[in-house]
Design a protein around this nucleic acid. Structure first.
Length: 312
DNA sequence: AAGACGAAAGTGGTTGA
DNA sequence: TCAACAACTTTCGTCTT
């Protein structure tokens, strides 16, 4: 959880300058000395407050007691308001009772019902994808905000749930591909992408382009590759980034190609088809990236070496 | 026969006038 | 708002192992 906050950038890795500018809108850090855009894992923690401030001051009371967004009533009781219960309560609890009822009163029944259904769906998809609890929480929060803003209108509930999950995955550096979300939720890929973009834009959530390296571990284990192959592919990725082969390209394609090359080098050959399937890209894309990697990084020798070794 | 490779046409999204 | 554009996909034919 805290890992994302730990590696904040203090110095520019390029020129060592400390004159850094944090662009909150884009979630980027820019070095004013050399102009380098430092891509660091960064989460904008500020918008949570902005969202609630704009809703009204009374909502800020949620700071304090831990609440969970994965329950539609946020962990508070649902049967608040039964008059019979009130008589049995002491003074202290009576205050609590009034607070809770006041809280609940503010939530219209329509939103409540929507949330109840949506969060059930969210949990279903989340457990299907084996997502960590933190991501589930985050996506539930995003969805709740979306509902409060009326962003669900005109869109299917399921697609917004999928969009929120996708956004949460990206923010927590546990990326799932759109294909995986699509399979788990039964929503079309482009629909998820659309609502994802819409929701994040409307809520002012900034999301960094996902890092290809984040995919490696998952793809690697899906292909049953060795740990050496895995770490080699990370090395390849780092080299590729230095040669500016990664910008503008789909991260999954790059990760897949790096893994494919790495597997060749270590004599753990997988077909392009196999790698393409787990990465959710086509063989053609892998071929293109693969070719670029060989051209710019001069990896041909390494591959030839392992071929010769095999013959002996 | 299966996998690797490459060309051509199509798709959805971004960008710039 | 529309057209140009880049990245990626689909499809299909050819070459290699």
């Amino acid at each position: 959880m805290a890992s994302q906050q730990q590696n904040m950038v203090k110095k520019c890795p390029e020129c060592g300058g400390i004159n850094l500018f944090w662009n909150r809108e884009k979630g980027e850090v820019i070095c004013k000395d050399c102009g380098l855009v430092i891509e660091d894992k960064m989460v904008d923690f500020s918008q949570e407050w902005r969202e609630f401030d704009s809703e009204g001051s009374e909502k800020r009371r949620r700071s304090g007691a831990p609440m969970t967004y994965t329950q539609y009533d946020q962990g508070l009781g649902t049967e608040v308001g039964q008059k019979g219960d009130l008589l049995r309560l002491g003074n202290k609890d009576r205050n609590k009772f009034f607070r809770l009822r006041k809280w609940q009163y503010r939530i219209s029944t329509a939103i409540e019902r929507n949330l109840k259904l949506a969060l059930a769906e969210l949990k279903r998809v989340s457990s299907y994808l084996k997502l960590p609890k933190s991501v589930e929480e985050e996506s539930a929060r995003i969805y709740t905000l979306a509902v409060q803003r009326g962003l669900v209108r005109g869109r299917s509930m399921e697609s917004v749930v999928a969009g929120a999950l996708y956004a949460a995955c990206r923010r927590h550096d546990v990326p799932r591909t759109l294909d995986e979300l699509s399979e788990a939720s039964g929503i079309e890929k482009k629909e998820i992408g659309r609502t994802y973009r819409f929701v994040t834009r409307e809520l002012g959530i900034t999301i960094l382009p996902s890092n290809p390296a984040d995919y490696i571990a998952r793809f690697s284990s899906a292909l049953k590759l060795s740990a050496e192959t895995q770490s080699k592919s990370i090395e390849i990725l780092e080299m590729a980034q230095k040669h500016e082969l990664t910008s503008g390209r789909g991260p999954t394609g790059i990760a897949a190609a790096a893994l494919y090359v790495s597997a060749l080098i270590h004599g753990e050959k997988r077909t392009q088809r196999e790698v393409a399937d787990v990465a959710g890209v086509t063989e053609v894309t892998i071929r293109n990236r693969y070719k670029e990697l060989l051209d710019k990084l001069g990896l041909e020798k390494d591959i030839k070496k392992t071929k010769k070794k095999k013959k002996r």
